[in-house]
Amino acid sequence: MVDEGTRKTLSSIPLLKTKAGPRDKELWTTRLKEEYQGLIKYVQNNKEADNDWFRLESDKTGTKWFGKCWYIHNLLKYEFDLEFDIPITYPTTAPELALPGLDGKTAKMYRGGKICLTDHFKPLWARNVPRFGIAHAMALGLGPWLAVEIPDLIEKGIIKYQEKSEDSK
């Protein structure tokens, strides 16, 4: 079940209008603009709530996305690379968010580091096609996943805090 916090976060992300996937040419460009607007608003909301937790960008076609997400645990910041493709069935099917750096480190993952979402994610997504977009997938999928999995992985010693080195900015 979606908790109150997630519900509140979700409700402040603007809904999308255009039902179009990457094979839909001009309509996809319209959809992509909506995606970016949704993401920009969501990141702004996060910053205002002092809960900035990811950055994302895409290639020109809007089908390959990559970025970083991070999680603060005991005042230390743990950062992870994030990537996913937009499948040709989008937005009927949600994007499969992946943290390749954690592949093989947790059972709550499918091949290639795709995060394993709860039983509630897919029905909620399906009920909200085409209104939900990437920002909603982040808020509803990756956010709660990090909140559950990362503290657990840190406690088990599977992931360790890394001081920022020169080349990682």
Partner: peptide, 20 residues
């Protein structure tokens, strides 16, 4: 709309490149 009160995205005057 089911679980969102945030309203729909308004058509942006910015281009995709500008949004990116």
């Amino acid at each position: 709309p089911e679980s969102s009160t945030g309203g729909a995205v308004a058509a942006s005057e910015l281009s995709l490149e500008e949004l990116m």
